[in-house]
């Protein structure tokens, strides 16, 4: 009886352990969205032990001179598997990597490209240096062993804004800000594809841990003026037209208004977090949790402006 029970338990343990013991395969399948242009679309979830942090879009462009990679993903494993996926598409070597900004899901795969020049805006490089360690720890906390062995590898080169031609592709490197202090957008003039990084989200609520809403809105105007044929947002589906820009702008304006009004009405943070979402955002993935996070990131500044009437001290203190 006891032996049987044990055997059953062992069998159960093995059956549970088997999928977890699989070699952490992100199952990356490059999708071709334009000439020479491939993307890896992540889920629109939060980072979990189930998805290993694959919640992000990355891309690569296969030029005559070699492959240009845009963002390296959330972990060392992702970077390695992305590089293997690239090798399944082309024999050409990876010649250059760009990090669009310093958030962990976009650059913690850099280790897989240690032999390739990695470039980012100066503010992005500074962010990778200052926050990278904490980001890697937190990725491990959220994604578990998917992230083991992941260390921040800081981009070695500054991006110089302007045109850069690689193997017949004329890339416009556009230095913007607002989602973070340094947001690189890349327009490929050859294909009309805009790699927008996290300045653009579509059907996934935008994140704001290092955001300046006003600067972000200005950057969206600059992106809209490009008139790109196709846009790869940092999170969400590839799309033609400006749906991502419009939706991100709509969210940010609503967020700004909501926080301003809440502060003017005297609400406290935890109360603001409970406010109803507008119908158009109710079913957007992560709308509630990103709104809660944004209240923590941003409300303090709105609140301080509303508390402008400094009370008069009636007693001088030593």
């Amino acid at each position: 009886m006891m032996a049987r029970l044990l055997a059953a338990l062992v069998a159960f343990a093995l059956s549970v352990a088997a999928p977890a013991a699989a070699p952490f395969d992100y199952r990356l399948k490059p999708e071709k969205i334009a000439d020479d242009t491939w993307v890896l679309i992540g889920s629109t979830e939060d980072i979990t032990r189930g998805n290993g942090g694959n919640i992000v879009n990355t891309a690569f462009v296969v030029t005559k001179e070699g492959v240009v990679v845009i963002d390296s993903g959330p972990s060392r494993r992702y970077g390695e598997q992305m590089r293997a996926a690239i090798a399944r598409v082309t024999d050409k070597p990876v010649v250059r990597v760009f990090n669009t900004h310093h958030h962990p899901d976009h650059f913690l795969g850099n280790q897989a490209y240690a032999d390739v020049p990695i470039a980012a805006l100066p503010a992005t490089r500074a962010g990778e240096r200052d926050d990278g360690g904490a980001f890697a720890d937190n990725m491990y906390r959220m994604a578990g062993d998917w992230a083991s062995g992941t260390e921040p590898q800081v981009a070695q080169q500054d991006v110089k804004p302007g045109r850069l031609t690689v193997g017949g592709h004329e890339f416009e490197l556009i230095a913007l800000e607002g989602h973070t202090a340094g947001d690189l957008a890349i327009l490929d003039h050859r294909t009309g594809v805009l790699f927008a990084g996290d300045l653009v989200f579509l059907d996934r609520a935008p994140t704001t841990p290092h955001a300046s809403v006003q600067r972000w809105l200005k950057s969206l105007d600059a992106l809209a003026a490009l008139g790109a044929k196709k846009t790869l947002p940092g999170h969400g589906p590839v799309h033609a037209g400006s749906a991502g820009i419009e939706q991100t702008r709509d969210w940010l304006k609503w967020l700004d208004q909501t926080l301003m009004q809440s502060a003017a009405n005297g609400l406290d943070m935890a109360e603001v977090m409970r406010l109803p979402l507008p119908e158009r955002f109710e079913r957007m993935p992560l709308a509630r949790s990103e709104f809660e996070r944004s209240v923590t990131h941003l409300y303090g500044a709105y609140e301080l402006r509303a508390l402008d009437s400094v009370a008069l001290p009636v007693l001088q203190q030593k």
Partner: peptide, 16 residues
């Protein structure tokens, strides 16, 4: 007790 499910900033966790 109203508070976020996850403390985005461990130095400032809002509670109502």
């Amino acid at each position: 007790v109203l508070a976020p499910k996850v403390a985005e900033d461990s130095m400032n966790v809002p509670v109502t």
